[in-house]
Design a protein around this nucleic acid. Sequence first.
DNA 1: CGGCCGATCAGCT
DNA 2: GCTGATCGGCCGA
Length: 201
Amino acid sequence: MAKRLTRRWYATDAETLAIKLLGCTLVRVLDDATRLSGRIVETEAYIGAEDRASHAFGGRRTPRNESMYAVPGTAYVYFTYGMHHCFNVVCGKRDEPVAVLIRALEPIEGLAHMRTHRGENIRDEGLCSGPARLCQALRIHRSLDRVDLTRSSSLFLEAGDADAASIAEVGRGPRIGLGEVGRWRNAPLRWWIKANPHVSR
DNA sequence: CGGCCGATCAGCT
DNA sequence: GCTGATCGGCCGA
């Protein structure tokens, strides 16, 4: 039976969590009890204040990124480019700005609903293949920022089936969409399930 | 205040 | 491969 991930499970560094999250299921329950879910197939680690690509670089702490400093298992949802949301899982320890960006899902439940959110003619592979796409598909927005993923009934994660993560080969490479951030630009902090058609690239 | 920029995406060339 | 959309957040004056 699907098991919700615990606080302890999240309490690790971002690189470790980025790999552990592959194969786990992200679940979103709408106000009308509609259940939407997908298997995590691509992640990126944002490893702390020293990471120049992170919103928390240099220890920057503002109302926008405050949830990055919360306890492990907290959601960090931010709005960007004037129109998109992205969803992160906070890890590490309280007051350490460490998180994993969820970049792509393989949709499992609620594909018809996802199409009403994303577009009727989108194929399965395009529904959740990108950090903003999956937020649009699952209706994840700023009101879910700071939610406790170990307690919330609207947004949470469940353990993957043991073999999914172990059988699949995992790819590793640079993160996507970064500006001029020096050595952090090419740091291999993105992971994905190889040969999975639902990854963002 | 004003100005710049972004952990993106869709649509076009 | 390139570009416009679109606007909240942040920083400097």
